[in-house]
C-alpha cells in the first residue's frame, strides 16, 4: 500500500468530524441541566432520562415500533433469502429488470411509497394500523436484505452444494444442512439491518400509522413542544446507542459470513 497522503488524510478526518458533529452533541444536551437546547451548558443531570422512564405514551410508541421492526425484519429477510438466492445462483429471463424493480425502493423518495400505499388503503377502505406501517417498511427493507444476503449467497462455493447432493442429500436437505448454516451470519445481519431501518423510519410511518404511533412519529410530535426537547435528546442518545450496538453486531456477522465462506472481505461495509 502507498503511504497515506497527509492532505487527503486530514480532509478525511475533517469530513468524519462533520459527519459525527450532530451525534456528538446528543450526549451534551441529553445530560445538560437546562430546559433550553442551546449553549452555554448549565450543569449535569439525569432528569431527562427519568422523565423518559415516566412517560407512558413513549413506552407505548416504543412497544409499537419494536413490534413493527421485528415483524418487518422477519418478513423482509424471508423475501430477501429467496430473492438473493435467485439473483446469486440462477439466471432467468429479464433477471436484471426484475431485480432492478425490486430494488427500486432504495432510491424512491419515501414520501412516494407512503403516499402510494395510503391511496390504496383509503380506496380499499382499510383502517391504518401497525400492519399498514409494516407493509411499507417491508417494501423499503427488502432491497437492503437482498443486497446483504446476495453477497452471502454469492460467496458460497457451489461445489459445497454439489458435494452434499453427491453424498445422497436431497435439494431440500442440502438447503437446511449446508446452505442455511453457511448463510446464517448473513441472515442475522439482514435481520438487524432491516430492524434498524424500520425502527428509525419516519415518513412512511407518518403516513400509514393509525392510533398506535411509532417511536419516530412520537418524537416528531414532541419536537413541537420546546419543553419536551431535552428528553427527546435523552431519547435520541439512547436510540443512537441502540442503533450502534445493532449495527456493530450486524457488521460482525457480515464479516463472519465472509470468513466462513472463505471469501476475502469485500470491503463494501454495510451496503
Amino acid at each position: 500500500m502507498k503511504s497515506a497522503s497527509p492532505s487527503l488524510l486530514t480532509y478525511a478526518v475533517i469530513y468524519l468530524i462533520f459527519l459525527y458533529a450532530p451525534i456528538l452533541l446528543l450526549p451534551i444536551f441529553a445530560f445538560n441541566d437546562s430546559a433550553i437546547i442551546a449553549l452555554p451548558l448549565s450543569g449535569f443531570t439525569f432528569d431527562w432520562f427519568y422523565l423518559l422512564w415516566e412517560t407512558e405514551a413513549l413506552h407505548q410508541a416504543l412497544y409499537n415500533s419494536l413490534t413493527i421492526a421485528i415483524i418487518t425484519a422477519v418478513i423482509s429477510t424471508i423475501l430477501g433469502i429467496f430473492a438473493a438466492r435467485a439473483s446469486a445462483r440462477y439466471d432467468f429471463p429479464a433477471k436484471r429488470g426484475i431485480v432492478g424493480f425490486i430494488m427500486v425502493p432504495l432510491v424512491l423518495p419515501e414520501i412516494i411509497v407512503g403516499v402510494a400505499l395510503l391511496v390504496v388503503l383509503v380506496q380499499l377502505g382499510l383502517a391504518l394500523s401497525s400492519w399498514t406501517v409494516i407493509i411499507g417498511h417491508v417494501l423499503i427493507c427488502t432491497p437492503f436484505s437482498i443486497a446483504i444476503l446476495a453477497s452471502a449467497f454469492r460467496n458460497l462455493d457451489i461445489s459445497l452444494e454439489e458435494a452434499s447432493l453427491d453424498l445422497g442429500e436431497s435439494q431440500v436437505g442440502t438447503f437446511f444442512r449446508v446452505i442455511l448454516p453457511l448463510v446464517t451470519p448473513g441472515i442475522i445481519s439482514s435481520l438487524l439491518i432491516a430492524f434498524t431501518i424500520s425502527l428509525d423510519e419516519f415518513i412512511i410511518a407518518f403516513f400509514l400509522t393509525g392510533t398506535d404511533v411509532t417511536l419516530p412519529v412520537y418524537i416528531w410530535g414532541q419536537l413541537r413542544f420546546p419543553a419536551r426537547l431535552p428528553s427527546v435528546m435523552a431519547l435520541g442518545f439512547l436510540m443512537v446507542i441502540l442503533s450502534l450496538m445493532l449495527l456493530l453486531t450486524a457488521e460482525y456477522f457480515r464479516r463472519r459470513a465472509n470468513r466462513l465462506s472463505g471469501a476475502a472481505d469485500t470491503d463494501k461495509g454495510l451496503f
Binding site: I78, S87, D91, F92, I102, L139
Partner: peptide, 27 residues
C-alpha cells in the same frame, strides 16, 4: 434452473408488484 430462479424471486417480485407497482398505478 431458470424456473427455479423465477420461482425463488417471485415472492419478492410479487410483493413489489402488489405493494409498489399497483399502488403507484392507483396514484
Amino acid at each position: 434452473n431458470e424456473w427455479r430462479g423465477l420461482a425463488l424471486i417471485s415472492p419478492a417480485l410479487g410483493y413489489a408488484v402488489l405493494m409498489l407497482a399497483a399502488p403507484l398505478l392507483l396514484v
